[in-house]
Nucleic acid binder design. Sequence first.
DNA 1: GCGGATCAC
DNA 2: TATGGTGATCCGC
Length: 581
Amino acid sequence: MNNRHPQVPLNASQETASLVKRLAGPSTGKAGLAKDQEDINRIIADVSKGSKFYENEKKKDKELTKKIEHILHLRDELTKNSGVDLEKIEANVDQILHKLECQRDLSQTIVHFDLDSFFASVEVLNDPTLAGKPFAVGHTVLSTASYEARKYGVRSGMATFIAKKLCPELIMVSHGMSDYSEMSHKVMAICNRYDPQMCPAGCDEGYLNITAYCAEHDMNADACVEHLRSAVFTETKLTVSAGIAPNTMLAKICSDKNKPNGQFHLPFQSEAIKSFMHDLPIRRVPGIGRVSERLLESIGIKTCGDIYTYRATLSLMDKQFGLLHLLRTHLGLGSTSVQPPQREERKSIGAERTFPPLGDKQKIIEKLQEICAELESDMEETQWTGRTITLKYKLSTFEVFTRAKSSNRWISRKEDLFAVGHELLLPELPLTLRLIGLRVTKLKDLRGPDPSIGIKRFFDAADSSSSNKKQKVSASETAQDPPEPEISENTKPTSKPTSFRKEKPESKSRQSPLERETHACPVCLKQVPTENDAFNAHLDSCLSRGAIRQAQAEASPSSKQAQGNLLERWTKMAPNSKKKT
DNA sequence: GCGGATCAC
DNA sequence: TATGGTGATCCGC
């Protein structure tokens, strides 16, 4: 490089490496990266420069940089504190690792499958002249790109005009939604033969437990998955990649290894798994996104092997980083069960729309009405109602805000949605908006538990012993139903709300502040005497409780990422940062 | 319960 | 000229 003559036109703004990377978008770096990713990121940053989107990304990047400074400062304070014994902390962590290792379960054969550039492949089937050409599916933002387009750095989630800059001959194809849905169902049905309990994770991927299938058909895992992939191809002409591993997290990572149209089988041995994890970039772990990657990198952690190196820091900063989850990741542990998604596990239903920036109050309200109509229709089709409404709006500057209100009535009609949405929106105006959305939570299922027997609904409240094992949630909610605006339901909205099924790790244990020989348990955060026996005893009970929580959290691998406490809150936005444009 | 934020697809 | 929609979860308050 010629330093005297930078290729890039001099920009007074000193772009940080992190901003340039951030602008490249969330999907860059998750999978295989192009050789000249640096150049590509440079082009993306230059094309974006000056836009409101760019300015917002810059602001967020700056805030993250500040958070990192804070975290590093905290780390230095904790580490340099003369009271801490790093070796002892490491020894404690090593004990946790040992106990986690003892819980390792290698008995289940889990598969993660993933259709190769699903939308793009379907489009090629519809129009074979697209084969081998760089093209992308989407409108303003790309849903997916063909493998030829990816060579240019074109990625899903990328703005179309940027993709065109990277690849001027890029062909744009718009969505053919019905085709995708039909193909998706076909593929899921095929996979279902191998595990009736399979769990779809989106329209183009899913998890299977093929342990039983392999046993019953006297087949090894490789042959089974080849069989599956071959069935998918002959019946749909779509190629699929797959990972075979002893748990869902590893299987997911492995399905990327030989993509496209390949499979990868991780040896089912502790040592092989740990060596696989050792060099794995932390960003490949499901749940670790761009922000967590930066936070972890700031303390020196780039790979899952680095987690061990910095275990003392992570232990001291468990609140910020979530030690236990990272240790499990380091060891390559994950959920060993696959369950089909349960309808009653749904937590919210919503709709949102982006439009050219609007400042006019009447026009904004019209957008809100459109959203309400859409949402009413979705809720009607899926038979949900709910009592908390959350308004979401995005300013023309790309800043996002939410405003929520809980009601004591069930809301699903568009008039009711609008009344609450309007009430939430009005005090915020005037604003220039580019997006409005509504989301309903605190849901109630309007569908009877057994749709084939209509009259049965009538007895629901008393009928806890029926064949419906999963009625637990419905039953408890029935007891706390607010007055029902409709006719059918409850005979009697009886008593008080029953407590919800959310166990928290008892954050409020008040211990003697002068206890000198205690250390925060990295699992439950309680202060525990550091003496070996006491610490061990505590750890045992804590880990077994933790294992239960973990199993629950991972019951449905698709929807319940164990993500989280990597980030503490730093600054609070002024709730009303009104911008006029 | 509310609001901000992260993450996956 | 120009950067999506749906759903989940977690944290701090």
